[in-house]
Each structure stands twice: as structure tokens, then as C-alpha cells.
Amino acid sequence: MKPNRLTLRSLLLPVLLSLVFSNVQAQTAEEKGLAIAKERKARDRGWGDTQADMSMILRTAHGQETERKMRVKSLEVMEDGDKGLTIFDQPRDVKGTAFLNFSHPLEPDDQWMYLPALKRVKRIASRNKSGPFMGSEFAFEDMSSFEVEKYRYRYLRDETLDGQTMFVVEHVPVDKYSGYSKMVAWVDQAHYRPFKIEYYDRKGDLLKVLTMYDYRQYLDKYWRPQRAEMYNEQTGKSTEMITHNMTFRTGLSDSDFDKNSLKRAR
């Protein structure tokens, strides 16, 4: 199934389908889900690299809050997961700590961390990426790049969310170390941007809901939400992630994402 056909679908869906396919029903929910995922990935291809400042506001069920700040550099990697470098600025006692991650769709990520207080780079050998990121409601796996191979898909239905027509697609993680049994994503049919993702825990109960706000388009092509909120349905805690000053194609290369670059990152 080719992605471009999906683009047309939203315009000429009934006519095209009846013309092109002799048996419309042959496209299973799984095939359709996969097609949507591929199109989503295809539309975001070629962004190159980005840099952004991020704030995370952590809130308890009772409204107490605390803020974390970091800078994030990302490098697009074709045929593999992306590379990411996170430099922590706040709280003060972790300032300068830098975290490098090479994500891989099916194998454990490669991860290194530079601890300025120890003046050492440590490689983290762990299959886990489902724990809370800096005590927030985000797990590292929620923030790593979207790769088609990470999930098995099932198209569920179309639904209107905030006036936009969305595909509702179920994602089942392939990695057995994922913290989730499944996710359900609402992807808009116009631009294939996720607006809402429900995360279900291992016993199949709704655990968290991620909602994206204020999508902004960069380079006339790439959409990024300026604000995202993860709400934990089971504990009532939430984390708001705010993106400031995102810039694209800043000239980063592989050499900015290696062990040596960690110590330099300030």
C-alpha cells in the first residue's frame, strides 16, 4: 500500500476505492492502521535536525507543581531511530547533566549520560525505557521518535475531535519491555498529526492520556505541538511539556551526538 494513495483518499475516497479496488473490504483494519502509520512517518521525513528549549511542569493531583527545564537536540536518522541529546538545566543540582540516546525501533536504545559532578560519561545498559522521565508522567518511550516498526497497528474508526476528522488507530508495542499493552492515537486526516494518545497499562486499563496543543508548522512542512499534556488517569498527576524556540536544520551532525559531545554540552 502506497502512502500517496492515502492522501487522495481523504478527497476522493468513495469513488477511488470503488474504481481502484474490486474488493474494498479486502483492506483489513490492520492494513489500514499500518498505512496510516506509514503515511504519518512519510509526511515527517526529511526534517534533518532540530534544537529546542523545553519546560516540564509536573503537577500532583492536588495542584502542587514543580518545573524542570532542559534543552533538546535531535538528529534524524534514516532507516533507524533518531538520535537525541538532552541537556538538563533545572533543577539546579542536575544542571549540565547530559543524556544521549540512539533510539532503535526493535532493539534496546543505546544510552549514555554525562554526570558533571562525577565528571564521567556512563553508558546505561538497560532494557527499560518505560520508567518516569525526571519523575514526570512521561516515560522516555513516550518521547522518543515515532518509528513504524515499533508497533502493530489496527485502524479502529474515524472520529471528529475538536472539529477535525481523525483516524483512531490502535498501536500495540512490539517491544516486550514497553510499559504499555496498547495505545490508541487520534491522528488528524488532514496532516497526520497525533492530537491525542491514550496509553493502556499492562492489565489493559487506561493509564495516561497525552493531548497535544498548538501545532505549528516549520519549513512549510513539519508540524510540532508547542504544548503537550500527559494526564495520569490512575493517580490524577499530570505533566505539561512546553516547547520554546524550536529551530530546524541548525547544522547538527553525527559528531554532535557522540560520547565526546556529551561533556562539551553545556
Binding site: Q64, P91, V94, M113, L118, G131
Partner: peptide
């Protein structure tokens, strides 16, 4: 040192799996 402790904890938190975090021992703003 405080920084060392904080950075250990940051490192440790990032390497724990779902459900086995230290939120049962440390509160939101530590």
C-alpha cells in the same frame, strides 16, 4: 555532594522500568 546525589537519582530514574520507579519514596519536587 548534592549535585552528585541529584545526578545519580536522575540517571537511576531514567533506567527503571514502568511501575518500579522511586515515586513511592521521593515526592514530586524531591
Amino acid at each position: 555532594e548534592q549535585e552528585l546525589a541529584a545526578q545519580y537519582l536522575l540517571l537511576y530514574e531514567m533506567s527503571l522500568p514502568y511501575g518500579l520507579d522511586i515515586n513511592n519514596q521521593v515526592n514530586l519536587d524531591k
